[in-house]
Every structure is written in C-alpha cells, then in structure tokens.
Simulated assay, not measured.
Amino acid sequence: MAYQEYIPPVLKRALEVLTYIPTYGERSASRFVYNFLKLSPEERDEILKTLFELSRSARKCSECGLVSDTDPCRICSDTKRNKRFLCVVEESQDAYAIERLERYTGVYHVLGGRIAPLEGISAEDLNIEGLLRRIENYGVKEVILATNPNVEGEATANYILSLIKKRFPSVKVSRISHGLQFGSLIELADDLSLERSIENRR
C-alpha cells in the first residue's frame, strides 16, 4: 500500500488546500497543519473562528487597495491624513508595518505586487494606473516609493519613477533609504531600521 493511502483524507485535503496560499508549498503547509493540531481544541476553534470572520469581512479599499473591513479604509477616511503625501507599497502588510511606527501621516497606495518577469508579473498586473490617477486627483506633493529593497522592488520603483517624472515632472519622488538590508522585506523589518529608512528617504 502506498504511503499516501495511509494519510487520513481530511488531513491530506488540509495539506493540499493550504498550498493555495502564495509562497506556501508542501513543507510550509505541513508545518502549519501539524503545529495547528498541537494546539488545544479551544485554541484551534478560536483561530478558525477568527479566520472565518476575516474571510467574511475583509475587503480591499477602493481608494488605496489596503486590506480593510471598511471601504474606504480607516486611513483614507481619516481627515487628519495628508493626501498630498502618497506612500507606494507592494502589499497591505508593508503599509501596516510603516503604520506601526506612528510617524507617517500621509496615505498609501498598494500596488498588489511587484514587477517580476520570471514569475510572469508585469507592470500591467499592478495597480499603477490607479496610482497615477490619485497623483492627479490629490495634487500630490511627494510620492514615497516604499517597495521592498530587492531586485524586483528596485525595478518596480524605477519603472514608477519614470512614469511619474514623465507625466508629473513637478511632483517630488523619493525612495526609502537602504537602512533596510538589500534583499529584505519591509513587513519583516525591525522598527528602528524601518523608521530610519522612511526618515532618510532620498
């Protein structure tokens, strides 16, 4: 009998469906499932309940693209935020990492990824046209390019920079500084490095 036939169908299915999550392969799915099963029944129920509530209430802000439970999101609807400063990030988790610092008072724009030709992701797959519309509509003063400091993030930032300079030559464009190590991810950066990278943008 093949080893797969010994695995309970419900366990096998759980391992399969978790690979639907981007970056989750068999090993990541296996670690999640088996560690999840080590928790108490009460802890497992709480996680499942929370994920179910998240699945029902989560949506993308139609203005900036942030994952939120309201539309527009709390940041876009906050009248105290300065919409003339626009921070461009790859994903929602990058924006929330910056928010954790409680220093930035502008708004965000989520691209929904980065240009990655080897993965079949082009500029057309990102929310770049929405960014250009917001620059025009808000009369944006500065665009802060906060894509990840790696090859794909740099390529994405340079592409957006060229578009902005062509269509909005008077708009200031800055890039977060390399207080973050090249090849790192914004969402995983420590607060001090992230804060320095924002403050020392160039």
Rank of each mutant, 00 (worst) to 15 (best):
Y6G: 06
P8A: 08
P9K: 10
P9L: 08
L11D: 09
L11Y: 11
L15M: 08
V17L: 11
T19D: 04
I21C: 08
I21K: 10
Y24E: 12
Y24F: 13
R27H: 10
A29I: 01
S30Q: 13
R31G: 01
F32L: 13
L37A: 07
K38C: 08
K38I: 04
L39D: 08
L39A: 09
L39Q: 08
S40C: 09
P41M: 06
E42M: 03
E42V: 00
R44P: 02
R44N: 00
D45V: 00
E46K: 01
L48E: 00
K49G: 01
T50A: 08
T50P: 03
L51G: 03
L51V: 02
S57K: 11
S57W: 09
S57T: 08
R59H: 04
S62N: 12
S62G: 13
E63M: 12
E63N: 14
C64D: 02
V67H: 04
V67A: 07
P72V: 00
C73I: 03
C73E: 03
I75A: 10
C76Y: 00
C76I: 00
D78Q: 08
T79H: 12
R81V: 04
R81N: 06
N82D: 14
K83L: 08
R84V: 05
V88Y: 05
V89W: 10
E91R: 12
E91M: 10
Q93D: 15
Q93F: 15
D94P: 02
D94H: 03
A95T: 06
A95I: 06
R100N: 04
L101N: 04
E102Q: 13
E102L: 12
E102D: 13
Y108S: 12
V110P: 00
V110M: 05
L111P: 07
L111T: 09
G113I: 02
R114H: 13
R114F: 14
P117E: 05
S122Y: 08
E124G: 14
D125A: 09
L126S: 10
I128V: 07
E129H: 08
G130M: 06
G130D: 12
L131C: 02
L132P: 06
L132M: 13
R133Y: 06
N137M: 11
Y138E: 11
G139W: 07
V140N: 03
V140K: 00
E142W: 02
E142L: 04
L145F: 05
T147L: 14
